[in-house]
Design a protein around this nucleic acid. Sequence first.
DNA 1: GTTCTGACA
DNA 2: TGTCAGCA
Length: 128
Amino acid sequence: MSEKELRRSMAVLPMGTVMKLTSLTARQIRYYDDCGLVKSKRTESNRRLYSLNNIDRILEVKDYLDEGMNIEQVKRVYEKQRRRLASKNSNQRQTVSDERVREYLRDDIMKAGGLYVDNDPQFKQGYL
DNA sequence: GTTCTGACA
DNA sequence: TGTCAGCA
């Protein structure tokens, strides 16, 4: 892992900072957190700590939700990515780069934003 | 002052 | 989701 990636993965931001950076309420951030959509760390006093990568994830979740998806559907998206990356790593002995990960993220965001229509059974079939 | 959990008109 | 309570 490069030094840059290491820093982006360091959980050092408290709730107040995340609220300012994402324009979300503490309630919403905790909700995403409790749903397992973001992997925050905790201080000795049980305070949540987030990394820069966590911020990106939170913003992504917000976008998905704004595009009409519910929490369960968002979870599906990340489960799919986890499986994809898992198979990638097992079939190839090379590590997936950060850039590659982002490529997958954009791909899913486009699919979600482009195909979703209220009560569209095809969408539910694809993500449920 | 800040964040946490739990609960609810 | 907002918001208030009661702690740490």
